[in-house]
């Protein structure tokens, strides 16, 4: 395909309506809310529920949430896991406000399920990014 054809196709793609962006933002902020707004009840329950479950299971296992501050570690190394954690939206924000799950506690790190908990917390955020994109696509009419 020549470049001009590709540019023409790009021009033909309709821009997403502002409601789609709002739905995407809502889906990020509260896992499952985006699909609830779109009246996709089952998707909201399954996809949002999976994120909430992942987060609370991760917390129950003693997982650790990441922010930019870390003792004895580079700030740059904190950025990728923080982006993943941030995907849980309000769950991350509330935890951050109450400083719950962020402390580097050796006793917590010694738990057998500590790394599992970290993984569940990271995956909760990443799954919610998928939820957000799915809700956005549905709201924009790009997906049935």
């Amino acid at each position: 395909m020549v470049k001009t054809e590709r540019l023409q196709q790009a021009d033909e793609v309709e821009p997403a309506p502002s409601s789609a962006w709002l739905t995407g933002a809502a889906a990020w902020f509260v896992p499952g809310l985006g699909h609830l707004l779109l009246k996709r009840w089952w998707r909201a329950l399954l996809m949002g529920g999976a994120v909430w479950a992942c987060f609370f299971v991760g917390m129950a296992m003693g997982g650790h949430l990441f922010d930019l501050y870390a003792e004895g570690s580079s700030t740059l190394l904190q950025v990728p896991p923080m982006i993943a954690n941030l995907g849980t939206g309000i769950l991350y924000i509330v935890s951050w406000v109450f400083d719950y799950g962020f402390k580097d506690d050796p006793a917590q790190a010694a738990r057998a399920t500590y790394e599992y908990g970290n993984t569940f917390l990271l995956i909760a955020g990443l799954l919610n990014y998928l939820n957000m994109l799915d809700a956005f696509d549905i709201a924009a009419g790009r997906k049935p």
């Binding site: 089952w42 399954l46 996809m47 296992m61 399920t113």
Partner: peptide, 25 residues
């Protein structure tokens, strides 16, 4: 045994999201 259960839980939750957002029917 606990490790296997955790892996199963992880696979279950992740596959629910992958399954729900993929395909048409």
């Amino acid at each position: 045994m606990r490790h296997f259960l955790v892996m199963t839980l992880f696979a279950g939750l992740a596959s629910v999201v992958f399954g729900a957002m993929a395909k048409d029917t």
